[in-house]
Structures are given as C-alpha cells and as structure tokens.
Amino acid sequence: MTQQHDRELARELLAREALYLDTRQWGDWLDLYEDDAVFWVPAWRDETNLIQDPETELSFIYLRGKALLEERVRRLGSERSAAGLPLPRTVHMVTGSVIEELDPEHLLRVSSAWSSHIYVHKDNALLTYAGRYEHTLVRTADAYRIQSKKIILANDFLIAKLDFFYV
C-alpha cells in the first residue's frame, strides 16, 4: 500500500466509525476495533491539563478491551443503560484529520477535530459535544482497525449522561 492509500483508508475508517454510531450499526462499529483496544475519555485535572493515568485517576469513560465495548452495546439492547433510554439521535462530524506514521509497517496516529450533535427527543433538546480525537490505528491485511481511541472533550461540563455513542 502507498502512503496516500494508507491515509485514505485511515480517513475512511474514521468516517465509517461516525456513520456506524449515527446509524446504530453497533456490530459494524465493534468490528472496527481490535480485541485489545482502549476507548478512553479522560477528565480534565484543571483548565489546561488532562489526567494522565486512567488506571489511577478519574475518567469520564475508560474501557480496556473490546469485550467492554461489547458489554456497553449489550446494555443498550437490554435497557440497562440510562444513557440510552430512549436512544437519542446523533450526528458525528470528524474533520481536520492529521495522520502521522508511528511505524511505517503497522501503526498510524490520527488526530482529528470532532463534534457530536445529540438530539434527545423526549426533552426536545439538542446537545453538542466537541473536542479532539486521538486514534491509533493498526494495519491488518487490507485495512486499518482501531487500537486505541482517546476522546478529549472541550466542553466537559456534562449536561447529560455520557456514553460511547455520544462521543
């Protein structure tokens, strides 16, 4: 694969992830992740510094391993998720992706700006979250998969429940 082709695949992956979240294609969304993937929404320590260690400091969300992502998806279907009752409509926008090779053979880091618009129909309310994504992607035979996703919330004063499909 050429470097340009790799970049196109990486951008396509991020666009698909957003689409799968918005269209509730949970199985397809999970298929984008490696089995040992990390999904992390760190909290802010203060106005300019994020926490650094999700194992010892408070995070909004910290899921280590695809099995924990699968559990979140199962909870949506079982009505055990307060964030998903009823499921809001979402629109994710990902833009300004900057791609850096970490290992020319296998790994890419993609930094992007994002926003998520969440319509909570029971409250007739439109919420918006925004921030930065930091994805680490690993190359498989013909595509990339998500090894880790760090979601940095710019507006971290949460006025609603937060779950994986909001960010």
Rank of each mutant, 00 (worst) to 15 (best):
L126H: 09
Y119V: 03
G65A: 01
R89D: 09
G65R: 06
W114Y: 13
R80L: 15
L76M: 13
T90P: 01
S116V: 08
A83K: 01
G77F: 06
R109A: 14
L127E: 12
R72A: 15
L87R: 12
N124A: 06
A130H: 12
E105P: 00
H106A: 06
E79Y: 14
A83H: 00
S81Y: 03
R80K: 14
T90A: 04
G65F: 03
S112W: 07
R64T: 08
R75F: 06
T128M: 13
V73P: 03
L68F: 10
L69S: 02
A83P: 04
I118T: 04
V98A: 05
H121V: 03
E71G: 05
T95C: 07
V94Q: 05
R75N: 05
E71I: 08
Y129N: 12
T128Y: 07
R109T: 11
M93D: 11
E100D: 13
S81L: 08
V73F: 07
A83G: 01
H117A: 06
S116R: 02
E101G: 02
R75C: 05
H121Q: 15
I118Y: 05
T128F: 07
N124T: 06
I99M: 11
E105K: 11
A113H: 09
V91Y: 15
S116G: 00
H117P: 02
L87Q: 11
S116Y: 10
V98F: 12
G77N: 09
V110R: 11
R64K: 15
P86N: 04
H106K: 14
E70R: 03
W114T: 07
L69A: 03
P88R: 04
L127Q: 08
E100I: 09
S116Q: 07
G77M: 01
L108Y: 07
R75D: 10
A125T: 04
P86C: 00
S81N: 11
M93S: 10
A82I: 11
H106G: 02
I99W: 14
G65S: 00
A83I: 10
L102Y: 02
D103Q: 06
A83T: 03
A83R: 01
S115A: 11
S112E: 05
L107Q: 13
V73S: 04
S116C: 07
A130T: 09
I118Q: 07
S111R: 15
S116D: 05
V91K: 10
Y119F: 15
P88K: 07
A67W: 13
L107R: 15
L76G: 00
E70Q: 11
